[in-house]
Amino acid sequence: MSNLVIIFLSIGLFFNFAGCLGLIRFPDIYNRLQASTKCVTLGTIFILLAVVIHFGWNSISLKAILCVVFILLTSPTAAHAIARGSHRAGFPLWEGSIMDRYREDQEGETESAN
């Protein structure tokens, strides 16, 4: 493995680790989603880029690049679905939260009624 591959793998692992630690340390589901979507997305992308560099230009790299695109599209979408679903299912925000405009608007119901 070249040095560049090891550097990319290390960056990926560092951000994945930060994401997992955030999943444990942050107080409520919304903050945990923030940590897990952002860090795990970039961490996994760096690991896939390490795969691309290691294998050079062939079908494995092409699949890795397609996976990067899929992760970029699906990860924020899934986070949005989980956050919206949890809020509608009644999971509260952490008690230290500043405001919740989503609850004030009854999850958008008042908005669409206008």
């Binding site: 340390r25 942050f26 919304y30 925000l93 952490w94 230290g96 500043i98 405001m99 405009r101 989503y102």
Partner: peptide, 9 residues
């Protein structure tokens, strides 16, 4: 953990 979370519109 310096966070001030909340939902804004």
């Amino acid at each position: 953990m310096p966070i001030r979370p909340g939902i804004v519109k």
